[in-house]
Design a protein around this nucleic acid. Structure first.
Length: 920
RNA sequence: GCGGAUGUGGCGUAAUUGGUAGCCGCGCUAGACUUAGGAUCUAGUGCCGUGAGGCGUAGGAGUUCGAGUCUCCUCAUCCGCACCA
């Protein structure tokens, strides 16, 4: 009988669980290593083979590190708040907590069957009050801090208050929503409400009016990608732009540190680049343009101060607060209409017709501080409210967007950088010489920019500055299934609940929909107010709230006194290896870094970056199978004959297709309408077509890991998922190949057994050849593990097994280390063999075998000998020879002599252990 | 448009980082055994050619004694950003 993987795997999984062998505690005698997976959102569909890909890789690495003597923290939990459970609740009335609990139970069952080495004692879900208590707590800290740009860290709001009371805004260098200016007297004269409102301008968590995509029918704010053609993606309900009070995190305060921190991280270049683009740093100048007959100024940000002499018009975004004030009466009607129209367009809509030029003249004029000219002020949607100041100076000659606008509205174009031909297009280059530019004529772009900045500082109308594309993160959601804000309102001003009142529990509601008058679902809760009767915040936190600091909580998951104990944090520091999808590059991975840097500023954690090394595992796509039905019949034609008929392809469940051959009997049973189907076969078989698509239920191409574990065992599944290809690559799932790994597992088992399947191991001293196979494998596995090349590792195991099986090696000194090597990949079979080998401890505690290079050194070896790069001969040489000696022997070789034919070679290139090349 | 990748047999991939391209596996071909299976084992399998041999890493150039690997151009595919002043 062959290896009984079912019995063995179940037995060991039970033993591991009962003896808690993967439980880990701080141990100062060992170096720590923290391996983390991006925790899953437990959806109703359960796991498919794509999900565990990253978990298997991280599990292999965690097991490898343990055997290398590290104390490994490898936890797992669930990101439990989220939309699907809420949607299900709205439809069925079932509480999302119940759905979530069921889904988690199913996930756990599936995960357990794959044999992961998670420390389940540290498990939590973000929807646990014990956990979200700390999410709320961090939010309070964010509210109570602001960001000092001078010292580049968060400081308590109390310090700000002190500063304001003593010197007003004088000497303040804080990240802020908009620049404010008042004296200490003015501050001290403010009412509490006024002061609180003012402080919101600086807090790291603040509430403010924001333009959002509001869907009245769904009763919620939608993200840009949830809006398609002006209607909601789900349901197709109209979406309008609306100014709403939203909680916002001042992520932008950390832009520079988020950017700089990237340099210290071992992340892929592509994902770092995505984050760099997302943060979007640009250097330039802030300049105030005065407006004719107005006391207010039009403030702009430009990266090209050197082109200031080329400004021929100004543009404000449709959301700009000054529009109403500066528009002249004769232009009012037109401007109002345009603003109304533009404001109601979603960002997605604006993006889709980027090329269409639209705008309107306000009738007002700004004054160019350098030329004193009157410049018309326009409103146009190509200027965005969320970037810079929401206003620009337009230089059509040297900016393609301004150029298109000027051409469309017939505005003047003035060339100020020499070298281009502005009759056709804008000349955008950044190396050129300034012309027609007064005081900066003849200067290079770079020098001119510097000089203009000096001048505007002198004139008191601006300064050089750095602007970031990174926006503050909207933090409220008008939904039920999320963390409630620890916030109550007094006279419309938000206040934080006292910390000892946390967690603020998510209340029960009778329905999970928004209320009839558009308030979030929490407004349905009875007594949603403080003990004193103050109303509580009705929106909840977004999905990324719970996942931003979760990695810290695993270090100390049951602490109800603090978020994470300092000593424990000091031991575990941060995540050494983080594995997850690259789709989180601009979401979770930015927010989490922000969150952690903030906690670092507060001295609560010891590292300012959360994830040292990041591996982005690829997606596993589905491979759908098709059958071809001849039109208007119930006859199906095999793939290569289908061109002779008119056919409709129909997706067929991949589970009734093997190696693209349809199991006809199962097909007839699959659907009642196919019960009496007929088939046109080729070579007696029905061959199905295939296509690579996303893995999804509706495409019948989902491979459930449970089925594969049932049929081939967890070890085979683990090894096969790794064998599929490099971990970062997206690849289609192909069940056909798993047979090869399955055969390997059986062959591996047979190494330790005789023909009668009795465990049979020899204590004999292995031969040099046998040691060579082992040490070659140790080196390969160790190297591959360190560079996360798990697919080549699996190949190495196969090669070693083939070689050992060929020479019928069953020596303990070879097979025992081999079992340790494979235990990270196939822990169940390794554990079984380990115990058969007579060990009583678990293989996870075994020491990774040491590599002995001396076995690999050849005494002599065949070298290819090439002439001018063309390989002609194989010659055997001793490896002990010095290059000079080697060269002599080669040149004396009769074949070489013959080839040289009396000529002297120009040079002889000897690449150690590789090749000998004679160049003539 | 900008940025980042990737391109090797019928398929997934490998190549000690510039040194005999195609390891390992799937599939396929032939054979053995058989309790007839979607089992196991053996041999073969980049392409062309009976053969010697020739050609081969998306295409084209270049550097080099030697290029899948380095440089430049072109093409294709994927991902991210996209009026960011």
């Amino acid at each position: 009988m062959d290896y009984n993987f079912r019995e063995v795997e179940q037995r060991w999984q039970k033993a591991w669980k009962e003896q808690k062998i993967y439980h880990v505690e701080e141990d100062l005698s060992k170096p720590k290593f923290y391996v983390l997976d991006m925790f899953p959102y437990p959806s109703g569909a359960g796991l498919h083979v794509g999900h565990p890909l990253g978990y298997i890789a991280s599990d292999i690495y965690a097991r490898f590190k343990r055997q290398k003597g590290f104390n490994v923290l490898h936890p797992m939990g669930y990101d439990a708040f989220g939309l699907p459970a809420e949607q299900y609740a709205i439809q069925t009335g079932q509480h999302p907590a119940i759905t979530t609990k069921q889904n988690i139970a199913r996930y756990r069952e599936q995960l357990d069957r794959i044999g992961f080495s998670f420390d389940w004692d540290r498990e939590f879900k973000t929807a646990d009050p014990d956990y979200y208590k700390w999410t709320q707590w961090v939010f309070i800290q964010l509210f109570n801090h602001c960001y000092c740009k001078k010292c580049e860290k968060a400081i308590p709001i109390e310090e700000l208050k002190k500063h304001l009371a003593q010197q007003g805004t004088e000497g303040l260098h804080l990240a802020e929503t908009k620049p404010l200016s008042f004296t200490a007297e003015e501050w001290n004269a403010m009412s509490e409400e006024e002061q609180e409102t003012t402080l919101l301008n600086y807090r790291l968590a603040y509430i403010a009016d924001t333009w959002v995509n509001w869907c009245p029918k769904l009763g919620t704010v939608l993200a840009n990608d949830e809006v398609v053609n002006g209607v909601s993606e789900r349901g197709g309900f109209p979406v309008e732009r609306k100014l709403m009070k939203q909680w916002i995190l001042r992520v932008s305060a950390y832009a520079e540190r988020l950017l700089k921190g990237l340099e210290t991280l071992e992340w892929s270049d592509s994902i770092k680049e995505v984050q760099r683009n997302w943060i979007g740093r640009s250097e330039g100048a802030f300049v105030r343009f005065s407006i004719e007959n107005q006391s207010d100024t039009l403030d702009i940000f430009t990266t090209r101060p050197d082109t200031i002499y080329g400004v021929t018009f100004m543009v404000m975004c449709p959301e700009h607060a000054l529009i109403e004030q500066i528009t002249t009466p004769d232009r009012k009607q037109e401007v109002d209409a345009y603003v109304q129209w533009a404001r109601n367009r979603s960002e997605t809509e604006r993006q889709t017709d980027v090329k269409k030029v639209s705008g309107v003249f306000t009738g007002a004029y700004a004054i160019n501080p350098f030329t004193e000219e009157k410049i018309p002020i326009w409103v146009a949607e190509y200027v965005l409210a969320g970037y810079g100041t929401g206003g620009i100076m337009a230089v059509p000659a040297h900016d393609s967007r301004d150029y298109a606008f000027a051409k469309h509205f017939n505005l003047p174009i003035r060339e100020v950088i020499a070298g281009g031909d502005i009759s056709k297009e804008a000349f955008e280059t950044k190396d050129g010489t300034c012309i027609n530019s007064g005081c900066i004529d003849g200067l290079s772009v770079k020098e001119a920019g510097k000089k203009i900045i000096e001048k505007v500082i002198e004139m008191g109308i601006g300064y050089g500055t750095v602007n970031y594309r990174l926006r503050d993160a909207i933090f409220s959601r008008q939904r039920y299934w999320g963390e409630p804000f620890p916030v109550y309102y007094k006279n419309g001003i938000p206040y934080m609940l006292p910390e000892e009142d946390l967690p603020l529990l998510l209340p029960e509601v009778d329905k999970y929909l928004p209320t009839e008058n558009g308030e979030p679902p929490l407004a349905r809760a009875e007594h949603w107010q403080t003990a004193e009767g103050y109303p509580l915040e009705c929106s909840t936190m977004p999905g990324f709230a719970g996942s931003s600091g979760y990695f810290l909580r695993y270090m100390d998951p049951h602490n109800d006194k603090e978020f994470v104990n300092k000593e424990k944090n000091k031991y575990w520091e941060n995540v050494d290896l983080y594995v997850g999808g690259s789709e989180h590059a601009t979401g979770h991975l930015i927010y989490s870094r922000f969150w952690n840097k903030f906690l670092f500023d507060l001295g609560l954690v010891c590292k300012d970056e959360p994830y040292k090394k990041l591996i982005n595992q690829g997606m596993i796509q589905g491979r759908s199978n098709f059958v071809y039905r001849i039109i208007q019949t119930n006859r199906f034609v095999s793939l290569n004959l289908k061109d002779q008929y008119e056919v409709t392809p129909i997706r067929v469940d991949v589970n009734i297709v093997h190696n693209d051959i349809l199991d006809i009997e199962s097909f007839k049973k699959w659907r009642p309408e196919f019960a009496d189907a007929e088939f046109v076969l080729e070579d007696g078989k029905y061959i199905c077509g295939w296509e690579i698509e996303k893995m999804s239920k509706s495409k019948y191409n989902v491979q459930n890991p449970d089925d594969l574990v049932e049929r081939y065992g967890a070890d085979t599944l683990r090894m096969y998922e790794m064998f599929l290809g490099p971990i970062e690559l997206s690849k289609p799932w192909d069940t056909n190949g798993i047979e090869g790994v399955f055969r390997f597992m059986k062959k591996f088992w047979r190494l330790y057994h005789n023909r009668e399947n009795e465990f049979c191991i020899s204590e004999e001293e292995p031969s040099r050849e046998e040691y060579k196979i082992l040490h070659k494998t140790i080196k390969k596995i160790e190297d591959d593990n360190e560079r996360f090349s798990f697919n080549t590792s699996v190949s190495a195991f196969m090669i070693a097994t083939n070689e050992l099986s060929d020479i019928q090696c069953n020596k303990r000194k070879i097979l025992e280390p081999l079992a340790i090597l494979i235990s990270a990949y196939a822990p169940h079979i390794a554990e079984e063999l380990w115990h058969l080998l007579g060990h009583t401890d678990f293989i996870v505690t075994a020491t990774f075998p040491t590599f002995d290079g001396s076995y690999l050194v050849e005494k002599d070896a065949n070298y290819p000998v090439s002439f001018n790069g063309k390989t002609r001969l194989q010659r055997k040489f001793s490896l002990d020879l010095q290059p000079k000696e080697l060269e002599k022997i080669i040149l004396e070789d009769p074949e070489v002599q013959k080839w040289l034919d009396g000529k002297t070679p120009k040079k002889v290139i000897i690449v150690p252990k590789k090749i000998i090349n004679i160049v003539i």
